[in-house]
Design a protein around this nucleic acid. Structure first.
Lengths: 146, 146
DNA sequence: CCGTATCCAACAGGATACTG
DNA sequence: CAGTATCCTGTTGGATACGG
């Protein structure tokens, strides 16, 4: 996602520090014609299953394919494979194959994956804390827009 | 997303504190048969445009529809409307209509929206810091899997 | 056990045209 | 200006069957 140059107009009352950082962030993006790094991350776990895979691996350490599949309610074999491959490709999880019969494959978060996990955890805190307020806002909105 | 009950097996070497928190988190989810709060949040901005809308509003404060549309490269009128409505419904942004001709509508982050913004910002920091490592991992993976 | 291959339905989202 | 309405396409992801 490439950002256009834009006029900066500070009209709201949010923290000036974050404002300044955002400002720099947008400047940088538009100068270098780079893709938004946040979107890159969100694309990683914005899909239906990546987040759940990371959380489960964070919870349980080394985990086998079918165990993961059992834990993630509703995931199909295909989608779990696709998800895990994608995470592996980005270096967020490792995949270890054991030359046994029947075969055994263990997945585990890498150091990079664990650092993402802790970020996600922070977000989860926000989510838990804000959930009621969001539900309330949603209900109110639906009442006012019949 | 409802979590199944699961055996807890700690085999990895990550921070015991986070491990414990995750543990409690999964327990809670499975007991109450609730939907995962994190997924709720990610569903908010996991789509193609919500994140960019929040970031732009965070950067510029009160913003009009078309200004937002110009800043978010590539968004269609339809999708911007849909995105903004969804964010408004969840109480993340406010929408103020001015009874003028031609009409003017200003969008702005609410306090809740700003609190999400700062979470997203933290995530962005992680993304910026980890981007090179991810790209490297991706390249390596692609080389090894032709 | 741990996948891959194929097919297909559902939905997100773009293009376009029209309104208060 | 700031939308709504309609149509239409590409992608996501589930179901199923098969392979190492």
């Amino acid at each position: 996602m490439v950002y256009k140059n834009m006029e900066i107009e500070q009209t709201n009352n949010q923290s000036p520090e974050l404002q300044q950082k955002l400002n720099a962030f947008f400047q940088e993006g538009s100068e270098h014609h780079e893709f938004c790094p946040i979107r890159d991350v969100v694309d990683r776990f914005g899909d239906k299953w990546s987040l759940l895979a990371i959380l489960n691996l964070g919870n349980s350490g080394k985990t086998r394919f079918n165990e993961l599949k059992n834990r993630i309610e509703g995931v199909s074999q295909r989608m779990l494979t696709v998800t895990l491959r994608s995470l592996e490709r980005d270096g967020l999880i490792s995949r270890k194959i054991f030359a046994e019969v029947p075969p055994r494959v263990e997945y585990e978060l890498t150091a990079l994956g664990e650092s993402l996990l802790s970020q996600i955890w922070e977000l989860a805190q926000w989510a838990s804390g804000s959930k009621e307020e969001i539900v309330r806002a949603r209900t109110e909105y639906d009442n006012q827009h019949p």
